[in-house]
Design a binder for these strands. Structure first.
Lengths: 179, 179
DNA sequence: GGGTACATGTAATCAGTTACATGATTTA
DNA sequence: TAAATCATGTAACTGATTACATGTACCC
């Protein structure tokens, strides 16, 4: 039971275990791919490594199947529930950085050829449109299903941000900087 | 001269060296803190480690002062310029994920107390407002200075995204999900 | 001339990614 | 029953962060 600080990934997994009940890494993987994965993706190997780290810290319990695939199934413990509660009760006072390659390239636009920047902006605008469509599809699929209000809210955020970025890149296409 | 793939940080440093001419890590640090740092921050130790990695790959040259602080000063080479050009000419077809702790907490909102989510939303809205103000101040400082059109454009993106996030969190404050 | 802030770097650690590898189940 | 694919993991690597450590210049 170490006291090592938990990472965002830790809380993500802890939240999944808390919300999904006794669960295997693969079940989490399935769920992630159609939900959180939209705004916080990671390789499935994390879903095998992190639960064991959480178990070592006493935040989850593991039970392994005796036969067949010998799956490991994780459940949250009281300390885990408490840690999750504490994390959720601590509001985030920082805003996240954009940190995108596209923005980085735009920043160095003066070193690029004008047509490269134009292509960048067009490609990004198109990517934003596709992402926006994908979000809308998911949003319609979820619909008004009870119990999904919060995931749905994050989707709304994704759409708002994507819309803003789309407008920005369209603006760059229409009026390239330094011209 | 290795062929290891360059990371985003590599290109960031390469772009700085290309744009600033023969430059020391500290000078890059100074510049970053008032520009790229807004949307892509990192510890200064990277500005000491990465140039040496780039030098090993032949993308930059290093010259060390003989006396005093024995600073290392880096300049871009022809292969480096070519690598940077190639990178800039390759449009980015993916959009970046949100990947923020605040969004993660909102996603798991059903496991939190209602007042925690309210506090989260209020705190985030306030943080967005402050960030927006900071961006506006920088924007006014840069003003219409020639040669800063591209960095300024990235600032515009930051403001658009921040504005969208602000509206979103204000919406959560006004109408909490699942109520 | 001593303290303080600025400037410059190194070392150790580690989370996250990449790549690999194998077992179980389905389907044709 | 062969092959494909689904499911489940492990091992190695490494970029990024954290923490440490020291040197230099300036100011009172």
């Amino acid at each position: 039971m170490s006291t090592a600080a938990l990472t965002p990934t830790s809380y993500l997994v802890l939240g999944l275990v808390a919300g999904m009940g006794p669960v295997t890494p693969y079940e989490m993987k399935q769920f992630v791919s159609t939900s959180i994965g939209c705004f916080w993706s990671f390789p499935h190997s994390q879903l095998y490594a992190e639960p064991d780290r959480l178990a070592a810290a006493g935040y989850v319990e593991v039970e392994q199947e005796e036969a067949g695939r010998r799956r490991k199934r994780y459940s949250i413990t009281d300390p885990g529930r408490e840690a999750l509660r504490g994390w959720l009760a601590d509001p985030v006072s920082q805003v996240e950085e954009i940190r995108s390659m596209a923005t980085l390239k735009l920043f160095f636009g003066a070193l690029a050829r004008a047509e490269d920047i134009a292509a960048l902006a067009k490609t990004q605008a198109e990517a934003c449109r596709e992402q926006l469509d994908a979000f809308r599809t998911i949003d319609e699929t979820i619909g008004g299903q009870p119990g999904f209000e919060f995931p749905r809210a994050t989707l709304q955020l994704g759409m708002k941000v994507e819309q803003a970025e789309l407008e920005f890149w369209e603006g760059i296409v229409a009026h390239p900087p330094g011209s």
